[in-house]
């Protein structure tokens, strides 16, 4: 886990283990320690079959690419809690580089914790992927009662608070594609022949 978090943090900082110098490694390790202590990981999941119906937003044309996976899908949300946000903000006041490292570490911790919460073959498909509407995240959170259960709020513009939160559909056997991705034209991963989900598309 420790190495996973370090790799993830370095990845979010724009470098990887092969290139990172001692100072960056030290900063990343410190940030991982701080954020791990503050992270209050919570998640919840409801299968669509237990929910008793298929939510309307999933029936939109943009979700056609996942249509074959919906029968076994679940709604899912997870968060690291508000203390992580506060710490990043507070670090940013006195030491911006520590804040950036903490931000990266929090992302890596969330990724790792979500990954650990998934069962074999499941992937998390979030609204916003593949041309779907990012604001559909509201529906996911509402159906999960995520505000009460996890403390995930949405702002008027549809942002999740705490920032280190994710929400979407767990799909079994689904393979991601960069088609429709908003930032494909400037994606660092694609330039290097990679994808953000860790394998060649």
């Amino acid at each position: 886990m420790e190495q996973t978090l370090l790799n993830g943090t370095l990845h979010y900082l724009g470098c990887d283990g092969r290139h990172a110098d001692t100072a960056t490694l030290s900063l990343a390790r410190q940030a991982i320690g701080t954020m791990t202590a503050l992270a209050d990981f919570r998640c919840c999941e409801i299968s669509l079959s237990d929910l008793g119906h298929t939510p309307d937003f999933v029936l939109k044309p943009a979700y056609a690419t996942i249509a074959g996976f919906v029968a076994e899908a679940s709604l899912f949300a997870a968060t690291l809690g508000i203390r992580v946000d506060r710490k990043i903000k507070s670090l940013g006041t006195v030491d911006m580089s520590a804040a950036v490292a903490a931000n990266a570490a929090a992302n890596a911790i969330l990724d790792a914790r979500v990954e650990a919460a998934l069962t074999d073959g499941q992937v998390l498909f979030c609204p916003g992927y593949s041309g779907t509407d990012m604001s559909d995240v509201r529906h996911v959170l509402q159906l999960l009662d995520a505000q009460r259960r996890l403390g995930i709020f949405t702002s008027d513009s549809g942002m999740m608070i705490p920032e280190k939160s994710v929400a979407g559909l767990l799909l079994k056997g689904y393979r991601f594609s960069c088609r429709g991705c908003l930032i494909a034209s400037k994606c660092e991963h694609l330039r290097r022949g990679l994808t953000c989900y860790g394998r060649q598309d």
């Binding site: 290139h19 990172a20 100072a23 030491d95 580089s97």
Partner: peptide
């Protein structure tokens, strides 16, 4: 050149 990364860039800026 990616011999230093965002944290060092910020530390230098600070």
């Amino acid at each position: 050149k990616k011999t230093v990364f965002l944290p060092q860039l910020i530390q230098s800026a600070e």
